[in-house]
Amino acid sequence: MLSLRRVAYIALAWVSFCLGMIGVVVPLMPTTCFMLLAVWAASRGSPRFAQWIREHPRFGASVVAWERERAIPRRAKGVAVLMLVFSVAVLLLTVPSAIVKLALVTGLGLLAVWIVTRPSPVDGSGPFTNQVR
């Protein structure tokens, strides 16, 4: 029988995974952070689900690179920064408050700097490759 704690971890893993999938197509919605949360929660509730995420052809390499090296693949960095730039453009055109615009643009800019300054995986694995150590 499943414990309440295990059920909660599994539920969190599935919700995070679904949010990550939505983030693939929706600007301003992150993908990788939800996948990292999903694999963390799944590791505690369903190791088989966690392994499935790690082996996923689209997300697995990025998750494994982060878990092993705290690294973000170069291509993922590029896609993330492009999406942040797109998000900033949308915010600048749609948010009426100058203070809110400034806060959001500053926050997204700092996030972009953080992403770019993370190391790249040693073996070059990442999204859009089939390399997983």
Rank of each mutant, 00 (worst) to 15 (best):
L2N: 14
R5I: 06
R6L: 00
V7I: 15
A8Q: 05
Y9F: 04
I10R: 12
A11K: 11
A11N: 03
L12D: 11
L12F: 05
A13C: 10
S16W: 01
F17Y: 13
C18F: 12
M21E: 10
I22S: 08
G23L: 03
V24T: 08
V25L: 14
V25A: 12
V26R: 13
P27W: 00
P27N: 05
P30C: 11
P30V: 10
T31H: 08
F34L: 10
M35G: 08
L36T: 01
L36M: 11
A38C: 00
V39N: 05
W40V: 03
S43D: 03
R44V: 03
R48D: 07
F49A: 07
A50V: 04
A50G: 07
W52R: 11
W52D: 06
W52C: 09
I53M: 03
I53W: 00
P57V: 01
R58L: 12
R58I: 02
F59K: 02
F59N: 02
G60F: 06
G60H: 05
G60W: 10
G60Y: 06
S62F: 08
V63C: 10
V63F: 05
W66Y: 15
R70C: 12
A71L: 06
P73V: 00
K77D: 07
K77L: 01
V79Q: 13
A80H: 02
V81Q: 02
M83V: 00
M83W: 01
L84Y: 02
V85S: 07
V88E: 11
A89T: 09
A89Y: 08
V90I: 15
V90N: 08
L93F: 11
V95R: 08
P96N: 10
A103K: 10
A103T: 07
L104E: 00
G107Q: 09
L111G: 13
A112Q: 08
V113Q: 14
V113Y: 15
W114G: 10
V116S: 10
V122H: 15
G124S: 08
S125K: 09
S125P: 05
G126C: 01
P127D: 01
F128V: 13
F128K: 04
T129Y: 02
N130D: 14
N130H: 15
V132W: 05
